[in-house]
Amino acid sequence: MTAETASAGAAPSLANVSQDATRVPGEPKSRSWLVRALVLVIAVAWTVPTAGLLISSLRPEVDVSGTGWWTIFAHPFELTQFTVANYERVLTAEGLFGAFINSLIVTIPATVIPITLAAFAAYGFAWTRFRGRSFLFAIVVGLLVVPLQMSLVPLLRLYGNYDLVGTFVGVWLAHTGFGLPLAIYLLYNYISQLPKDIFESAYIDGATPFTAFTRLVLPLSFPAIASFAIFQFLWVWNDLLVSLVFLGTNPDVAVLTARVSQLVGSRGAAWHLLTAGAFVSMVVPLIVFLALQRFFVRGLLAGSVKG
C-alpha cells in the first residue's frame, strides 16, 4: 500500500477526491495485514446471519426445515438444490410495481423534508440568537424519547378530521415529525462545531444568514447530512407501522413493506416470501448508501476553510 498520495497540505476539493486521498498518510505497512484480518473477522461475523437467510430463501422449504443452510457448501454447484420460486412470487406479485413507486413517493420527500427542516433548525439553534433558544433546543432534543406508538392515535384522530388519512402528504409529515428530533440533534452536533471564523469572513463579505447557510453550512455539513439522509431513508423505506396506520393497504397508496406483509398472510405462513421481499427491497437502500458514501471524505472542512 502506498500511502503518501495525499499530502496534508494540499487540501482536496470535493471534485477530485480519490479513494487514495481518504487514507491516512504515513501508515505503517507492517500492520496492514492485521487491520485487514480484523476487518474481515467482523465483516464475516456480521454477515453470516444474513447470508444464512439469503441461502435459505433460495432453498425449497422442505430442505430449509430439514438441514442447516451451510450444508449446501458440501456441493455448492449442484444447482438443483436451489429455487428462485420465492423471488418469482414476490416479483410477479400483483401491484408490486405500484407499491415500489409508492415507496419512492413516500420515502424521498420523507427524507428530504425532515433534513431540510432540521438543517435550517440546527443552524438556527447553533448560529443565531433569539430568546428561548436553549429552552426550545432542549425540548426538541428531549422529544427524542417520545415513543412513536403514543402519537399514533391522537394523530389519526386529527388526520381523520382533515381527510389526511391515506394521503402521501399526511405520511410525509408524519415521518418528518417522528424523524425531526434525531435529525436536529445529529445535525446540530455537527453544525455547531463548524469553525466560527468562516462565518465571520462570510459576513464581512456581505453574506446574509440565509446565504451563509446555503453556501457554507450546507456544503460543509455534507458528511453529517449524508449520514442522516441514509438513516432517514432506511427508516422510512423499511417502515411498516407508520405506513400501515397512515396510508393503509389500498393499492393506490400502499408501500412495498405493506404489500410484502400482505403476501405473507395473516398467520405469517409465507415467511420465505417475507425474506425474499426483504432482499428485494434491500437493493434500493444499498444504492443510497453507496451513493452517499462518496461524501464521506476527509479534508472537506479543512479545504473549504482555506478555500
Binding site: M1, R23, N238, A278, Q293
Partner: peptide
Amino acid sequence: DRIKREALAKIFIFLPLCISGAGAAVI
C-alpha cells in the same frame, strides 16, 4: 479508514440496517 475497499467493507456492517424489522426477526 485505512484499507482500500472501504465502502465495500462498510456494506457488511451496514447490511443489517437495510433489512426490515420483520426480516431481521426471521434471520
